[in-house]
Design a protein around this nucleic acid. Structure first.
Lengths: 216, 216
DNA sequence: GTCTATACCGTGATAGAC
DNA sequence: GTCTATCACGGTATAGAC
């Protein structure tokens, strides 16, 4: 079924759910609010997708594969452009992060809501482990492998802890809480993606190098 | 009123609320669950503290000042031990982080729950800005000031973005989601605080140095 | 002053009729 | 696809016990 603007009711439900779950978390949202926001009947989500939990997961899944694809392509590209030694830490981190910046800068609010949802899930003791692992670990292991090659003295323990810090830095940035704006008296703005990623790349790369060492 | 074990019912309510809010967020917890967990009547939280929102804030406030005190002392100490140039980046970051490790290692589950709650609040678009700023910004500005001295070429924008990454890395570690355990096939454990902080300090310090430069 | 039992009223998830 | 009934649950006020 297509509405005049070409967006089906099912999509409208997913969009509304994405936005609301991102802001208020799973328990802070009711199917009624989602239905109202989407301009559809309360029971329609259940009809198209299933119960509340299945709706949540459907929202989470919807953009995950696309994101994995963008990042996989970026990594492949930077590996092809590098010599036999493989890409540098900076290049790998850049391949990991820039696709996210691109997604946030499309002007499609949906991506911003989605990434804020990822921030919620990643930091949730309830959802984080299972949901993030299921959808993102395969790709992340590819990045870790590339980093291992770029940092030949690194132990796995070092690499994975560093990844953890990267993940936290990144997802707090996704969340766009506005706190950094306030703390810095507007020297930084949560909504300034370019600044966020331009600083994050050297920060994270420097962090990896500092922990993992470069000399034997 | 003191129970046999010396913990008042009000404290028991705060403890239960702390644990449950940390795991499930504000909306994922009911006053009834808190009361059951604390072994008290449903209406008692209302009597001692107020409504649900006031209870949430009371939990958040309870340990905030103590935490600020620990960290302020650590910073003061490292400033006193340093020469006229002030402490190094590593020393400042260490003063910022070690008190948290100490709190987590006391064996008092309460601190672990509290810090997981901070992770929730810090990443929440609803709570993050207001609540974190109100209780922690004053102290953080002291740390930023020390970092500005240690990194004389840094702009404010650089310093605050770097702080943002530090904050994200730290709070994801607080959240103890167990994801890093799974991703790393147990090379890293969320519950291994020593490893978490021992790696985080050089990671963050390296990140600051890399972004803010050290040469004129 | 501290605490419990209970009742009120709104809201929510979901199933089944249409 | 939609409307509606059901039944459970949640926040909170109040009355009164100790």
């Amino acid at each position: 079924m297509q509405a005049k603007n070409g967006i089906s009711k099912k999509e409208r439900i997913l969009d509304a759910a994405e936005q609301l779950f991102a802001r208020h978390g799973y328990d802070g949202v009711t199917l009624r609010k989602i239905a109202t926001e989407a301009g559809v009947d309360v029971a329609l989500a259940n009809y198209h997708i299933g119960n509340k939990r299945e709706l949540f997961e459907a929202v989470f899944v919807r953009r995950a594969e696309l994101l994995n694809q963008y990042r996989a392509e970026a990594l492949t590209l930077c590996e092809e452009n590098a010599g036999a030694d493989g890409p540098t830490v900076e290049q790998i981190i850049e391949a990991f992060l820039r696709p996210l910046e691109m997604a946030q800068e499309t002007g499609d609010d949906g991506w911003q809501h989605y990434l804020a949802l990822v921030a919620y899930v990643n930091n949730s003791p309830v959802w984080g482990k299972e949901l993030m692992s299921r959808h993102f670990d395969k790709l992340i292991k590819r990045f870790i492998k590339a980093l291992r090659k770029a940092l030949p003295n690194a132990t796995d323990k070092q690499l994975f802890w560093c990844y953890n810090y990267l993940s936290g830095a990144l997802t707090l940035t996704f969340a766009q809480t506005g706190r950094i704006d306030k703390l810095s008296r507007n020297a930084c703005k949560s909504s300034d993606f370019q600044a966020a990623y331009n600083h994050m790349i050297p920060f994270v790369a420097g962090g990896f190098r500092s922990v993992c060492g470069e000399q034997g």
